[in-house]
């Protein structure tokens, strides 16, 4: 195991058509990589766009940075300080590249991947777009993204219920980040756990579909409180449902008075221009910040 960054031994296997990286923290192995190469984090073999990072193949079926790794003494320490360090490094790296990164969170089945396919199809002429896909198992979502032509890294968390900043750092090693581009991080479908883990994104977005029921924002307030934007998806289904849109927005604003809301349908494209204008504003700000730092 690497004692500098804490990442696991490099037991790697390849399956048909893709590279699979297995990271077993409990099994120290020979593990070589360069920590003084001038980049701010560590690198394994970077397999662009076809890579799948599997964090669920350890003994516990769960990879968690912070356990049996490099330690730094702090008294009165934030329990997630290690994740915060990785997130800060990711954030600095994305800011230096002028990339606007979004952490997309929702319950399973809200339409996150369909939404991303729609965004890539509509915006690929205006922005270079890359995607990190988080799921417990399978590369299905990354394959859907790659079918659009955009590069995608699949991160499999195994039994893990969320992405963390260390996983994102490794995924960034394997993704071509283009200056002024967009990075979408599709978190594991879960309305609870992803709220706790800063990934180094610029903005958190919660996707909520109209089939889920109006009261999700007050049933699962943490994730709605942590997001800057709520996309109410599957709006094309509203005529077929007893769904009170105004009440949903009222509930979301009760837990987060500052949350912005767009009502969209990833299937029909309805409402998406509002979301794109929001992206344009933030992507422009990310580029301006990068230029100011130069």
């Amino acid at each position: 195991m690497c004692t500098v960054c804490g990442c696991g031994g490099g037991k790697e296997t390849a399956t048909a058509g893709e590279a699979v990286k297995r990271i077993d923290d409990d099994k120290p192995q020979n593990h070589e990589h360069d920590h003084i190469s001038g980049r701010d984090h560590h690198h394994h073999d970077a397999q662009v766009s076809n890579a799948r990072h599997d964090y669920g193949s350890g003994v516990a079926g769960l990879h968690v940075p912070g356990l049996s790794q490099q330690r730094i003494i702090q008294i009165e320490r934030n329990i997630l300080s290690k994740n915060a360090e990785y997130a800060a490094a990711n954030r600095a790296r994305l800011a230096a590249a002028g990339v606007f990164a979004l952490n997309i969170m929702s319950s399973p089945g809200s339409g996150k991947t369909t939404l991303l396919v729609r965004v890539i199809t509509d915006l690929h002429n205006r922005y270079p777009i890359a995607v990190i896909e988080g799921d417990q198992q399978t590369s299905n979502d990354a394959e859907r993204i790659r079918a659009t032509g955009a590069p995608a890294i699949q991160v499999n968390t195994g039994k893990g219920c969320h992405l963390d900043a260390h996983m994102i750092g490794h995924a960034l090693d394997a993704l071509p980040l283009v200056t002024g581009g967009l990075l979408f991080i599709e978190n594991v479908g879960n309305l609870v756990c992803p709220a706790a883990f800063d990934l180094g994104e610029a903005r958190k977005v919660v996707v909520f579909s109209v089939t889920e029921g109006e009261d999700k924002p007050i049933k699962y307030p943490d994730i709605f409180a942590t997001a800057e934007l709520m996309l109410v998806n599957k709006a094309d289904l509203i005529p077929h449902l007893e769904f009170d849109l105004a009440r949903t927005i009222e509930y979301a604003r009760r837990v987060n008075p500052r949350i912005e809301v767009f009502v969209v349908s990833a299937r029909t494209g309805e409402g998406m221009p509002g979301f794109y204008a929001w992206i344009d504003r933030h992507a422009e700000a990310a580029r301006a910040t990068m230029k100011a730092a130069e």
């Binding site: 769960l62 330690r71 320490r77 219920c161 969320h162």
Partner: peptide, 21 residues
């Protein structure tokens, strides 16, 4: 479930503090 992840982080900090002291 994220409580498990957070306990892993906590145990990592404890292990370190314990060695240090």
């Amino acid at each position: 479930m994220h409580e498990v992840s957070i306990c892993e982080h906590l145990l990592g900090i404890l292990d370190h503090e314990a060695r240090q002291h």
